[in-house]
Deep mutational scan, measured.
Amino acid sequence: ELKKVVALYDYMPMNANDLQLRKGDEYFILEESNLPWWRARDKNGQEGYIPSNYVTEAE
């Protein structure tokens, strides 16, 4: 089971490997080892790295 998180803030990608975050949207965490960058997937199936301090665990 993948960990689900909710974006606390918008995040615009800095490079091609990053994933855009939209405040309030849910994302699945694929990999937590790259702290403070986590690999995530959005609801459309896009994958990339996000800043872990921009998300919180979903209820």
Rank of each mutant, 00 (worst) to 15 (best):
D18C: 14
Y27D: 01
S33V: 09
V6M: 07
W38I: 14
L19V: 03
K43I: 15
Q46T: 09
E57K: 10
Y9G: 11
F28R: 12
L19Y: 02
Y49L: 13
L35E: 11
E59N: 12
L21I: 06
A16R: 09
L21A: 02
N44G: 14
A16P: 07
W37D: 06
L8D: 05
E1Y: 09
R39A: 04
V55R: 00
A16T: 10
P36R: 11
N15W: 05
Y54F: 15
K43P: 07
G24S: 04
E47S: 09
E47K: 06
S52M: 14
V6F: 08
M14E: 14
P51I: 02
E32L: 05
A16M: 05
W37G: 05
L21Q: 01
E47P: 02
L8F: 04
A40K: 00
E31M: 14
E57L: 09
Y54W: 08
K43F: 06
R41Q: 13
S52C: 10
V6R: 07
G48E: 00
W37I: 07
P36N: 08
E57V: 14
D18S: 09
G45L: 08
I29P: 02
L30A: 06
L35H: 13
D42S: 08
M12H: 13
L19S: 01
E1T: 03
E26F: 11
N15V: 15
D42E: 04
G45E: 05
Y11I: 03
L2Q: 12
L2Y: 10
N15M: 11
S33Q: 14
N44V: 09
V6T: 12
L2A: 07
Q20S: 13
K3A: 04
N15F: 04
K3R: 08
I50T: 01
R22E: 10
A16E: 14
M14F: 14
I29N: 01
Y54D: 02
P51W: 05
G24D: 07
N17Q: 15
N34I: 13
G24R: 02
E59Q: 12
E31F: 13
K3W: 03
R39M: 06
E59V: 14
K23L: 04
E26M: 13
N53P: 03
G24N: 07
A7Q: 01
Y9R: 15
E26S: 13
E1W: 07
Y11S: 05
N17L: 11
G45S: 06
E31K: 11
F28V: 12
N44R: 08
S33L: 09
N53F: 05
E47R: 03
I50S: 00
V55D: 00
V55H: 00
A7P: 02
Y54C: 10
S52L: 05
V6C: 06
D18G: 10
P13K: 06
N15C: 12
M12L: 14
L35M: 11
A16H: 11
L2T: 05
Y27I: 09
G45Q: 05
A7T: 01
W38N: 07
V6W: 08
N44S: 09
L19P: 02
K43L: 11
Y9E: 13
N53G: 10
A58D: 07
